[in-house]
Design a protein around this nucleic acid. Structure first.
Lengths: 101, 101
DNA sequence: TAGTTATTTAGCTAAATAACGAAATAATGA
DNA sequence: TCATTATTTCGTTATTTAGCTAAATAACTA
């Protein structure tokens, strides 16, 4: 993975709406309809949410799958959910676990 | 640390030049003059480098200190250097060490 | 003091991003 | 088949970002 590609991953995470989505997806896959109702953020329109999801998908962070009328997204890089802990908390990764949430 | 602040950290890391600088600073502090000569990137002008460093500083990722004629930068969040490993490599953080470079 | 080196600040332009509403697509249910 | 629901695509606008050159600042050296 090149420097450029790594930077693209961080860039994709560099928006509050997208980071919130990724943190939510860290708990397990969910459909767009759920992501559209996350209370963490000022309510964004459907199209805007959709665009943000596309950005994350293009960076290789998430993948989508259609099931019936809905589209479900899931995290392809589980570590990015942990990264938020690292950045948000003590500044070292060693001995970190999800219990630190 | 709020969602917004965490996102700001990722945003700051989301440019190849800045990510390269952070990865370099992960090996220890250095002055701007060194960062300006990193071979990893297409050569950027001094002012451009300076602006990138300011972005990293505003995000709380690095700090500067003047010593004589030079200004030295160092990493305030050592974990961000490790993050690059996580994103670039296998997608989990457990058992990661610098040997994985 | 004047000159040199290292770095930042200011001012600008071009390109990228974020957001929206309207329209399109796709799957289901009546 | 027609309407409904879930989501994306399109077209537009406002804002932000990345890069440059020129000028300013700060610390050393002759």
């Amino acid at each position: 993975m090149t420097l450029r590609e790594r930077a693209a991953v961080f860039k994709a995470l560099g928006h509050p709406a997208r980071l919130a989505m990724v943190e939510r997806l860290g708990q397990g896959e969910c459909c767009v309809c759920i992501l559209m109702e996350m209370p963490k953020l000022p309510k964004l329109s459907g199209p805007t949410i959709s665009q943000h999801l596309l950005v994350l998908k293009n960076a290789g962070i998430i993948a989508d799958e259609k099931r019936g009328k809905r589209i479900f997204y899931r995290l392809l890089m589980p570590c990015v959910a942990d990264i938020s802990l690292c950045v948000g908390g003590r500044h070292g990764l060693t001995n970190m676990s999800t219990a630190d949430l």
